[in-house]
C-alpha cells in the first residue's frame, strides 16, 4: 500500500536533486547569515527541518480539509503563512526552553524562519504536486534535511576559509556567494541521477 520507492524518490528529490537552497535558490538569507560555525548552522538546520516538517503536515491538513472543500484555494497564502508563523513561534518557545545557548546563537534568525521563503515555497508546492499525507510529511522532512545539508556544508567550508588567504576585495560576503555558486553547480550534477 505504501510505495516506499516513491517516498524515497520524493525524499531524495526534495533533499538533493531539487535542494531548496542550491537548486531552487530559496532560503538564501539564513544560508548566508547563520553559516559561520557548524554547530550553529546545524541547529538552525534542525529548527528549520522541524518547522518544515510540521508545517508540511499542517499545510496538508489545512489544504485538504479547509481550503479545497470550501473552494478557498485563493486564501492559501494567508492560511499557509498563518501555519508557518505559528510553528515558528512554537519552535522558538521550545528552543528557548530546551537550549538557551542555541536560542542565543540563532538570535534573530530563529523568528526570521517565518519569512524564510523556503518554507512558504515548500507549503505552496504541496498542493501543486498533489501529495498525500505521508508524501507531504516526507517532502517536508526531505526539504529540511536538504537545507541542513547545504547549510552545514557551507558552514564547514567557511570555518576552513577563516584561515585561508582570501584576497581583500573578496573577503566576507563575496567569497561566500562564490562558494554558494560553486556548491550550486556541484548539486546540479545530481539532476542527472
Amino acid at each position: 500500500m505504501v510505495d516506499l520507492g516513491g517516498l524515497l524518490l520524493i525524499f531524495m528529490t526534495a533533499s538533493i536533486t531539487n535542494n531548496f537552497i542550491l537548486s531552487q535558490f530559496l532560503g538564501i538569507c539564513p544560508f548566508l547569515g547563520v553559516s559561520k560555525e557548524v554547530p550553529t548552522a546545524f541547529s538552525m538546520g534542525l529548527a528549520t527541518t522541524f518547522v518544515m516538517t510540521t508545517s508540511a503536515i499542517c499545510v496538508w491538513f489545512v489544504n485538504s480539509f479547509i481550503l479545497v472543500p470550501f473552494g478557498l484555494e485563493y486564501l492559501k497564502y494567508v492560511a499557509f503563512i498563518l501555519v508557518i508563523s505559528s510553528f515558528v513561534q512554537l519552535t522558538e518557545m521550545i528552543v528557548r526552553k530546551v537550549s538557551p545557548p542555541i536560542y542565543k546563537a540563532l538570535g534573530i534568525f530563529l523568528p526570521l524562519i517565518t519569512t524564510n521563503c523556503a518554507i512558504l515555497g515548500l507549503a505552496l508546492k504541496i498542493p501543486i504536486n498533489g501529495y498525500n499525507f505521508i508524501e507531504s510529511t516526507i517532502y517536508g522532512l526531505g526539504a529540511g534535511v536538504g537545507f541542513t545539508l547545504a547549510i552545514v556544508i557551507m558552514a564547514s567550508m567557511r570555518e576552513r576559509l577563516a584561515f585561508a588567504d582570501v584576497p581583500k576585495p573578496l573577503k566576507g560576503a563575496p567569497i561566500t556567494l562564490l562558494i554558494a555558486g560553486l556548491m550550486s553547480m556541484a548539486f546540479m550534477g545530481f539532476s542527472g541521477m
Binding site: S86, Q89, L90, M93, I94, R96, K97, P100
Partner: peptide, 12 residues
C-alpha cells in the same frame, strides 16, 4: 489557542 498553551507549557 495552541500557542497560548505552549507559552505556558514552555515558559522560561
Amino acid at each position: 489557542g495552541g500557542l497560548a498553551y505552549a507559552s505556558v507549557k514552555f515558559s522560561v
